[in-house]
Write a protein that binds this DNA or RNA. Structure first.
Length: 899
RNA sequence: GGGCGCUUAGCUCAGUUGGUUAGAGCAUUACCUUCACACGGUAGGGGUCACUGGUCCGAGUCCAGUAGCGCCCACCA
């Protein structure tokens, strides 16, 4: 016997290990059609948040569904080594010991990070198990494991040999205090109350024809960073700015240095801002850098790593701190008559997220991937439909980005990550050898130099590591064993679906497209499913600093994993972001409870009736209309859910299975079954549709469905619902043998509406729900009457009636009634109501009806309406009018009754 | 500045190609502890579908404009 309450915790703790250890998550390549998905690997330092829960629920629903449909499935799990995030975690721990990474040295530090990974890196994969993910843990991968690292080295080498990787100057965010480059998202922008300094640059030669704010002698620029002035190599104006067309191409003199620099025209310049003229300092500003690239400008780096000025800034300033230099240099400008005036100005300044120092844009040598040649085929793949975005609108955003793609800076000045496989001859940074292994690099060096006695000691590996995304973009195939030719790769690549949130389309999805096409010759997936971001009840992004995060594990503890999953699925639309608060998870919990209780009800009755829930339905006959109805409802549910999932409409599928279970089975059929004439048949049918319902629900709520399936005896020990077949609708043969048709389906809906009407009548006349009443049903026609008579016993019970009389007699019925699709249901009042009040109410209703009838008559008399509306619509309008006239007639009789 | 969205019940959202009375959950009101379930049942209240105009026999749905909100990218030297 099932327990009175469902113990979700116990069920979850029981089933997950069984599933995993039985190999239910694992398929081998070979048989059947493949369905494969790679998980977006979470950071190894990460802990599970709502975004993961949503992302993985969607994937697990799809994977479990496909698996039950008979696909050979692979959902490949793993984690990302997350270069800077992981390095920071370990450095933080070191700081507690009073050490820096430099104290350990590179090798020991990296070993220390591995140590950390071995000890704590399993947190998130453990948490993913709590969600119920059916990921194939036997194939778990890590972006920094041996295989993935091999793939990285191979890819780097190949791209280098193809001329798609190069080394060049680039502006990075540099923290002078930490001595490291920072990624864009590691820079925190803060409001800064600063100044705009207006500086005069004398024009070389004549300035005739120059208009506006200029005079003949100089032009004026506005800058927030005067100390970078010695690094200027041009000034620029907007090409459409007519004020300045005359000076484009001329030269100006850079104050304090006497150097002549050109005046350029570039779209980057805003006409309205400042003076409309910008100083260009390519080595110290990201935008200026790009302008410099476009115009072939010299890049003059005037700063040292620690934020002090170097010799190129000029002898006077060399050695000064950048902010001290700003002060001194401004004084010098003023003294030289170059400073026009100063304005207050508020802008955003980047700070190091770790030490809060003002971040410097700094020119440095970095490694790059040429993206244009890689991007073009990736654009084409989406254009020609071989890869599809779901929803489709994301393809526009993808194209927009891909068509404006910039080269990808892939080197990072960190220690934790894939070290760049480039080796230099010691003391000669220009002689470099790129190879997958050090040995190969040495071989190359020997050949190139003609010196066969070179050893590893003569080579030096590039100290930088690769951007974390440089391993992630290979994820769909590096995880399957590439560059080896493996059976997995052969069978499961390309994967079918990729499910991710919108925020990493550029970082990850677009790059995987490029790598997949370039190295495998095929895009890495067919469908890119993009879902929204999880937000809090106020619509804010969930974040630690806001403290508005909901912890999925806390939700699982309070409501169960099934509740978390189902609620997320139900409230999630692919179209937009999802607002979540704790109360949302009650939906899922309540649903699990409902299922449990319905199962108990079935079990109790099955036992009493000696019913085998697994017995096939094939032999049954003589079905009542309610029985036909639930069978057809099951049929519809199977088809609907299959259809919605195949279109990635996760929410619609959840809604459909919820409605089928709760409304159709529990509210509709179970209530019928309680009073069915042939209980054994009624419950055999319930057992059959219940089993279908459990399997339909399983992708959303794996634990409760597995538990209930075993409790009820649908499955024996060792079997699992995970691998049961996903239910299909009934066959045409079954349908016709049982007499399932839309007319019967509609009849039962209408019959239930009639019961509702009767209950409403009791309510209107304030008759106790407990009281037995007399009911008369005036059926629409003889055929309907026959159907209703067949169900008269269940009607009596549902209506709590001492008698239900079915008639087609159009004789006058002086009782209150409600018109439904099957006819009118009348309630005998037995003289129990307040006549005066009723009389008044009826008069009111009559008045309303009268108005409606007049309106409808006018509509039908309108020639335009009858000529242009489709016949069906006109017919409907006529019917409505007729029905309301009948209603009016009944009310008039009723009015007499109360008068 | 460029791009993409959103506005439907008190709240969170569905609403497929235009077509009878615009749906669900939560919240709310009344009644019900009836032997599956109060994490429940029954019945009800609550919507000028942001606004304006257009197309059409017919618009929540299509078109144009207005207002408000949000996100992404680039960020103003």
């Amino acid at each position: 016997m099932m327990d009175k309450r469902y113990d979700a915790k116990a069920a979850e703790a029981k089933w997950y290990p069984i599933w995993e250890q039985s190999g239910f998550f694992h398929d081998e390549p070979g048989k059947g059609s493949p369905y494969s998905v790679v998980i977006p690997p979470p950071n190894v330092t990460g802990i599970l948040h709502m975004g993961h829960a949503l992302n993985q629920t969607i994937q697990d629903v799809l994977v479990r569904w496909r698996r039950m449909c008979g696909f050979n499935t692979l959902w490949l799990p793993g984690t990302d080594h997350a270069g800077i995030a992981t390095q920071n975690v370990v450095e933080k721990a070191l700081r507690k010991e009073g050490k820096r990474r430099q104290d350990l040295g590179r090798e020991a530090f990296v070993e220390r990070v591995w140590e950390w990974k071995r000890q704590y890196g399993g947190t998130i994969v453990h948490q993913q198990r709590m969600l119920g993910n059916s990921t194939d843990w036997r194939r778990e991968r890590f972006t920094f494991d041996e295989g993935c690292s091999k793939a990285v080295a191979k890819v780097f080498t190949q791209l280098y040999n193809e001329g798609l990787i190069y080394k060049g100057n680039y502006i990075v965010n540099w923290c002078p205090r930490c001595g490291t480059a920072l990624a864009n998202d590691e820079v925190e922008h803060e409001a800064n109350h600063g100044h705009l300094w207006y500086v005069r640059y004398p024009v070389v030669g004549s300035a005739a024809g120059v208009k506006g704010e200029l005079n003949k002698d100089y032009i004026m620029v506005a800058t927030t960073r005067p100390e970078t002035l010695p690094g200027d190599t041009a000034v620029a104006v907007n090409p459409k700015d007519e004020r300045f067309t005359a000076i484009v191409g001329k030269k100006v003199i850079l104050p304090l240095t006497g150097r002549e620099i050109p005046v350029l025209a570039d779209d980057y310049v805003e006409k309205e801002f400042g003076t409309g003229i910008v100083k260009i300092t390519p080595a110290h500003d990201p935008n200026d850098f790009l302008v410099g690239k476009r115009h072939g400008l010299e890049e003059i780096n005037i700063m040292n790593d620690d934020g002090t000025m170097n010799d190129l800034a000029g002898a006077k300033y060399a050695g000064m701190d950048r902010f001290e230099c700003r002060k001194v240099l401004v004084e010098d400008l003023e003294a030289g008559g170059f400073l026009d005036h100063i304005e207050d100005y508020d802008n955003q300044v980047g700070h190091c997220y770790r030490c809060h120092e003002v971040v410097e844009s700094r020119l440095s040598k970095q490694w790059f991937v040429k993206m244009k040649p890689l991007a073009e085929p990736a654009v084409e793949a989406v254009k020609n439909g071989s890869v599809r975005f779901v929803p489709d609108r994301w393809s526009k955003i993808y194209f927009n980005w891909m068509n404006n793609i910039q080269d990808w800076c892939i080197s990072r000045q960190l220690w934790w990550g894939h070290r760049i496989p480039a080796y230099y001859l010691k003391g000669d940074a220009e002689r470099l050898f790129v190879a997958e292994t050090a040995e190969e690099a040495l071989e190359k060096a020997r050949k190139a130099t003609g010196n066969a006695s070179l050893t590893m000691a003569d080579l030096e590996q590039d100290p930088d590591v690769l951007d974390t995304w440089f391993s992630s973009w290979l994820w769909p195939f590096s995880t399957m064993g590439w560059p080896e030719k493996t059976a997995d790769l052969d069978y499961y690549y390309p994967t079918t679906d990729l499910v991710t949130a919108q925020d990493i389309i550029f970082f990850w999805v677009a790059r995987m497209m490029m790598a997949g096409i370039h190295f495998m010759g095929k895009p890495p997936f067919s469908n890119i499913v993009i879902h929204g971001i999880v937000r809090d009840a106020q619509g804010r992004k969930m974040s630690k600093s806001l403290g508005n995060s909901l912890d999925p594990l806390e939700i699982i503890g309070a409501y169960s994993a099934d509740a978390l999953r189902f609620s997320l699925a139900l409230i999630t639309s692919l179209e937009c972001d999802t607002k979540v608060d704790k109360s949302k998870f009650e939906i899922g919990r309540n649903f699990a409870t409902k299922i449990w209780n319905a199962a108990r009800f079935l079990q109790m009755n099955a036992e009493e009736l000696g019913l085998d829930v697994r017995a096939p339905l094939a032999g049954i006959s003589g079905l009542s209309s309610d029985e036909k109805h639930i069978l057809l409802a099951a049929d519809k549910a199977c088809r609907k859910i299959d259809d919605t999932l195949s279109r990635y409409r996760i929410q619609d599928g959840a809604l459909a299975v919820y409605d089928f279970f709760w409304t159709q089975i529990c509210d509709g059929y179970v209530e019928y079954a309680k009073d069915a004439a042939d209980k054994k048949r009624a419950f055999a049918i319930l057992a059959d549709v219940f089993w279908k319902a459990l399997r339909l629900l399983h992708p959303y709520m794996p634990f409760v469905t597995e538990e209930v399936a075993h409790q009820l005896g649908y499955l024996a020990d060792g079997e699992t619902i995970m691998r049961a077949s996903f239910p299909k609708g009934y066959t045409d043969e079954e349908k016709s043998a049982w007499g399932l048709d839309e007319a019967t389906y509609a009849f039962v809906d209408a019959k239930r509406a009639m019961i509702t009407d009767l209950r409403a009548l009791r309510g209107e006349y304030k008759i106790s729900p407990a009281a037995f009443v007399k009911v008369t049903v005036q059926s629409r026609d003889e055929e309907t009457a026959a159907l209703l008579r067949a169900d008269v016993e269940t009607l009596k019970k549902a209506m709590r009636a001492e008698s239900v009389e079915i008639t087609t007699d159009k004789a006058e019925l002086a009782m209150p009634g409600k018109l439904g699709a099957l006819g009118t249901v009348y309630l005998s009042l037995d003289g129990l109501v307040d006549k005066a009040a009723e009389s008044k109410r009826i008069a009111g209703e009559l008045k309303k009806l009268e108005g409606f009838i007049k309106g409808a008559e006018a509509k039908l008399a309108n020639k335009q309406f009858t000529d242009h509306a489709p016949a069906q619509i006109v017919e409907t309008a006529r019917k409505q009018l007729e029905e309301n006239r009948q209603k009016q007639a009944q009310l008039q009789k009723l009015a007499k009754l109360f008068s």
